[in-house]
Amino acid sequence: MINKEFFLKGYKSILKHDSPAIALGCCFIAIGALLKNLGFNIQESIFSTMLTYALPGSLVMAESLLVGASLLNIFLAVWFVNARLYPMAVSLFPLMMHESQPKWKYYFSCHFIAVSAWLIMKSNYKSIPKEQRIDYWIGIGSATWSIAVIGTFIGFFSSDYLNKDLMMGLAILNPIYFLCMMVGASKTIQISLSVLLGLVLGPIFYFLTPEWSILLGGLVGGTIAYLIGELNVS
């Protein structure tokens, strides 16, 4: 089963001084308030965060519901926005694969793939033995997931007290936190260029195709960064 020691070690990673707990919690407070304003009840709001656990996807769903989009439209819009989770999973799971671990752990824990948990795991995996990394990851994922659920709960019940300025403050907090983490993670040419090109190309592609801009920005920027990094090494 799950190794308790490494699970707890992962769970406690959100208590560190530079943990994403505050940023993540505040973002889901904003989501909780938004869902309440859209007419969700508390069960639906919590259910949404527990099952989706991805901020941009929840925002897209909320927007789509607001304009009366069909279920197929919601599916496609969310799939496009959250397709970034695919390369995130492929760039994380090989670090945790171990033949002694059952596959259900990997299939179950892929639900925890989200920017905060992914960035914590990426910066800490080297200090964990490979065999135990999946248990450590489940600990990190459970912790960030709990924060998201608690944040939604608080946001739902405090929405009446949050004015527009406060909501704006809560909304900018998440991209700023991620931006700082990405800048902090830029320690090699490949990663630094990937971050830089993604930041520049994402908005440029938005003018051509808003739906595909994130994926195209990532694909083109990431590929150029990879090729330059490989050329530099050779």
């Binding site: 941009p56 970034r84 390369p87 995130m88 492929v90 760039s91 994380l92 090989p94 920017v115 992914w118 900018i172 998440n174 991209p175 991620f178 931006l179 990405m182 993670a185 490949q190 990663i191 260029l193 990937s194 971050v195 830089l196 090109l197 993604g198 930041l199 520049v200 190309l201 994402g202 908005p203 592609f205 938005y206 801009s213 994130i214 994926l215 920005g217 990532g218 694909l219 083109v220 920027g221 990431g222 590929t223 960064a225 990879y226 990094g229 490989e230």
Partner: peptide, 20 residues
């Protein structure tokens, strides 16, 4: 793996830029 790693970082950066 290295290529996917670059794709993941670039996609996240594109998402952040778009969000802002």
């Amino acid at each position: 793996f290295k290529w996917f790693n670059c794709l993941a970082y670039a996609t996240l950066a594109a998402l952040i830029a778009r969000t802002i």
